[in-house]
Amino acid sequence: MAVTTNKEFEQKYLGHLNDYTTAIAWSNQGNILAATSAAGEVVLWNDGEIKNLATASDASVDCAVFSHDGEFLAVGGQNGQVKIWQIQSWEQIELITTLENAPKWVDKMVWNPTKNQLAYNLGQYLQIWDTESQSVIVTLNFENSSVLSIAWRNDGKYLAVGGNQGVKIWDCEDWDAEPYFLNMPTVSLAIAWSPDGKFFASGNMDFTLSVYESSYIPSEDPQPWIMRGFPGKLRQIAWSNLRNSSNVPLLATSSVEGMVVWEKSKDESLGWEATVLTNHVDIIQDISFAPNSLLLASVASDGWLCLWKSAKRVSQVLTGSTGGFSCLAWHPQGKLLAAGGDQGEILIWSKIQRTQGFSKK
């Protein structure tokens, strides 16, 4: 493990759920953190204060997401229920709907980045629930397999869905139109649009990474970049908000216990150049860039949360999980960092504020 020489974050909070922490998410508005567990718990944290929205049951809750305006929180899990709360203030939180989908298991969900529409998986299907009409407005059929990943483009105009044989992309202004299909000879496990919407990446089961230029979607022949040589399937991918000297965001990927950061070269013939990051000694469970920064965070089953300065070298290693870490999430302003543990831990670190001293001569 790398030695920390200059601390950037210090522990602010440690709490415990009754089982494995399955998901954590910050509200885009304010300082509310949501966390869920394999025991079925749903809790909110706000500056040290805790609210229990759901207590332990016999069914795991596996995903938690806030709407772009922070007004709605949705969770889904093993029993097929999708629960949605409206958060008008910390004092006024109301469960507004429970969608019953048993025996299907809901473990993937994401809100539209521009309007309050929630996409979630139901086996090989995907449903879109709308807050304004309080109803499911469309059911989409992926057909080739169960839905394994979902990603809206940041302008909310396109919805990508990954699974066996590739990715289908729907035009959100015409749900009835046939989706565009990015055909792949593998399974698409993790997908993400770049924040500027210019690139689309898919991490795949066959140890490859596919990167597309959005301007070639749709196209008869989108001509993706294919990166190979990973030690295992691509489990996590993350884009930076900041761009490099080529005016392109960085792309981080994880496979087994290693990471690779990809930077697009100004020289088109070189494509994407790779920087290999190694420090973890067990499977990496989550990765994420800090907002408006090239500071990259990773958590793994080894119980380490690594901070990578400029996405190149370890600047600090955070611990506190008695087992391994399961998930992480950055506060939208980057001032707080939260992680969940496989023993039910919820840890929050705050960025250390540096002050300069002045002396009189």
Rank of each mutant, 00 (worst) to 15 (best):
T4S: 12
T5C: 13
N6M: 09
E10S: 14
N18E: 12
T21P: 05
S27L: 15
N28S: 06
L33G: 02
T36E: 02
T36H: 00
T36C: 09
A39W: 08
G40C: 08
K51F: 09
L53N: 05
A56G: 02
D58I: 11
D69R: 07
E71D: 07
V82P: 06
W85H: 00
E94I: 14
E94L: 12
L99H: 03
L99D: 02
A102L: 09
D107Y: 15
K108P: 00
T114Y: 02
Q117F: 00
I128N: 03
D130Y: 05
D130M: 09
V138T: 12
L140P: 04
N141I: 12
N141C: 11
N144R: 15
S145M: 13
L159R: 09
L182I: 12
T186P: 00
D196S: 03
K198T: 06
K198W: 02
F199L: 14
Y212R: 01
P222H: 01
Q223P: 00
P224V: 05
W225I: 12
I226F: 01
F230T: 04
A238Y: 04
N241D: 15
R243Y: 01
S245K: 15
V248P: 03
E257Y: 05
W262M: 15
E263I: 10
G271A: 13
V276E: 10
V276R: 10
V276K: 11
H280V: 15
D282P: 05
I283C: 05
Q285E: 15
I287V: 13
F289K: 07
P291M: 06
N292T: 10
L294W: 13
A300D: 10
L307R: 07
L307C: 10
S310W: 01
V314W: 05
V314G: 01
V317K: 07
V317L: 07
T319Y: 01
G324Y: 04
S326P: 05
L337I: 15
G344N: 11
I352K: 04
Q353F: 03
T355R: 07
